[in-house]
Amino acid sequence: MRTFSKLFIVWLMLLVIFFSACEEDDELPSITSEGKNTFGCLVNGELWLPAGRFGNSGTFAEYMAFNDTSGVSIYADNYDEVSSMLISIFDIPTLKEGKIYDLTNTSFFVQYTEATENQGCFYRNVTSGQLKLSKYDINQKILAGTFEFKAYSDACNDTVTITEGRFDIGEIMQ
């Protein structure tokens, strides 16, 4: 009977280890500014995290410069849910840490995309929103901040509410 008890305990421990290793992320990443390659937000109150493929995180940023203006585009994709987010902001002469950018500015591009069974919903008519840069270091290639916005989709005749958004990207492509 002792052998059976020992085997049962070992089997139970293995089950606990197996199931705890299979847990998915179920919370927003912490707000950081260290280049940890994190991104997350709530979409209509539901957790939304990027899910990349083939070893990538599903999140990256791209630096852009035009004459006296510089900017970044932040991309996040969730291949499992067939949804994505894109935020592009610009400033003269450069983006500024600590600045709050009004995402209703028509010079910026903001879009949340969601595929449904019948069509794609492109939420890009921003009715309110902001993005605050907490870190912008082009030399260290770190871009971090928080954001929120509401946007309308003409095709789907619907509004999406994005809250508690945060990003900490450690590789800005140029």
Rank of each mutant, 00 (worst) to 15 (best):
K36L: 15
N105G: 04
E97K: 03
F60A: 08
E97M: 03
R53T: 06
F60M: 09
M85K: 00
E114N: 12
S57A: 10
F108T: 01
D77S: 12
S83H: 02
A65K: 15
G120C: 08
G71H: 00
L103F: 09
V72S: 06
A65F: 10
Y75K: 10
Q119M: 14
S70R: 07
E46K: 12
T94Q: 13
N118E: 14
Y112M: 05
A151W: 05
I74T: 09
K132H: 06
L143E: 13
G129W: 00
E62M: 08
K96N: 09
S57N: 08
V43N: 01
Y152R: 11
K135C: 12
W48T: 00
F60W: 15
S128I: 11
L49S: 00
F122T: 06
N139A: 13
F108S: 01
E148S: 11
T127G: 14
E114W: 01
Y75N: 09
S88H: 07
N56R: 13
L103Q: 11
G40T: 00
V110A: 03
S128K: 15
I92R: 14
L47T: 12
Y101T: 08
A144K: 02
E117L: 13
A65R: 15
Y101R: 10
V126W: 01
R124C: 09
P50V: 00
Y136K: 10
C41A: 07
A115S: 13
T146K: 03
A144C: 11
N125M: 14
G55D: 12
Y123H: 06
K36Q: 13
N118P: 01
Y136G: 10
E148H: 04
T94W: 06
K36I: 12
F122A: 09
A151C: 10
Y123L: 05
S107I: 04
S84T: 00
T116N: 07
F108V: 02
N139K: 14
D154W: 02
S83V: 02
R53F: 08
L49Q: 00
A61D: 02
Y123D: 06
G129N: 07
V126D: 06
I87Q: 03
I89D: 01
K96H: 05
E117R: 08
F39M: 05
D137T: 05
D154N: 12
G45K: 04
V110C: 06
D77R: 05
